[in-house]
Design a protein around this nucleic acid. Structure first.
Length: 219
DNA sequence: AAAGTATTCAACCGCTCTCCT
DNA sequence: AAGGAGAGCGGTTGAATACTT
């Protein structure tokens, strides 16, 4: 049977919602089979459509500044572990966050390239590496590898990978965002009080409440 | 108004992980 | 313990849309 690809029609969406309502959102191969979707969507495709688009708990609309800061913070800590990051942002999907990161952070990186910040000869890259030293080796390796974000060698600027650059941007933005008194939600309330201390200090684990599984993953 | 370029995001691919037998 | 199947994840692609010239 030919596998159906491409955008989902409204009809297909309705059918999928109906079937998931009946059988739950677990057995995707089964769901794909019984749904009778024209041309044969595979289970994987059904799952993706449900998780990223049809799930009733999904939040619609743009990423809020609070969410953005949370994404930046979580990414600086977790690297490209989008599903982990998504778990901390109710209603947002890993795909959404991943896309957001790629588009917005790349844009910021380009802006930053155009008007380089003259400050801090001891560039914050220094403390980024400090922050990364808090992470397990595989995370550090991941976030410094060029493949993680799919950039080509063109994206490597003066010996730094785009990941390093983006992390720096993320940290700077977090500092400016936090110090401008914008922190309203509880996550950031605690962090704001930590402000003038070095970045890597308040990025260390005790200031972040981790899930048990997160904690175990790193120890 | 048209053409060219950039951005966004849904969807696919391939790999890894987890669970079950 | 081994192997297979299904689920989940991260990276990538490409079509649609927005913006610029």
């Amino acid at each position: 049977m030919e596998m159906r690809k491409g955008p989902w029609s409204e009809q297909e969406d309705l059918q999928l919602v109906r079937i998931v309502g009946l059988f739950g959102d677990r057995r995707w191969d089964f769901i794909a089979k019984v749904s009778g979707l024209r041309g044969g969507r595979i289970g994987k495709s059904c799952r993706l459509r449900w998780v990223n688009y049809l799930h009733p708990d999904l939040k619609r609309g743009r990423i809020t500044p609070q969410e953005e800061r949370l994404i930046l913070e979580l990414h600086s800590r977790l690297g490209n572990r989008w599903s982990r990051i998504a778990r901390k942002l109710p209603g947002r999907t890993d795909n959404e966050i991943k896309n957001y990161w790629r588009t917005h952070m790349r844009k910021k990186a380009q802006e930053r390239k155009r008007k380089p910040c003259p400050s801090s000869p001891s560039s914050s890259l220094t403390y980024i590496s400090g922050a990364q030293s808090e992470l397990p080796s595989e995370v550090v390796a991941e976030s410094s590898s060029t493949s993680a974000l799919g950039e080509t060698s063109d994206d490597v600027v003066e010996g730094y990978s785009m990941d390093q650059i983006w992390n720096e941007i993320a940290m700077r933005d977090m500092i400016s965002g936090l110090s401008s008194g914008e922190c309203k939600d509880e996550v950031y309330d605690g962090m704001c009080s930590a402000i003038p201390s070095p970045m890597w200090e308040y990025c260390s684990y005790p200031l972040w409440k981790m899930d048990d599984e997160d904690f175990q993953a790193y120890h």
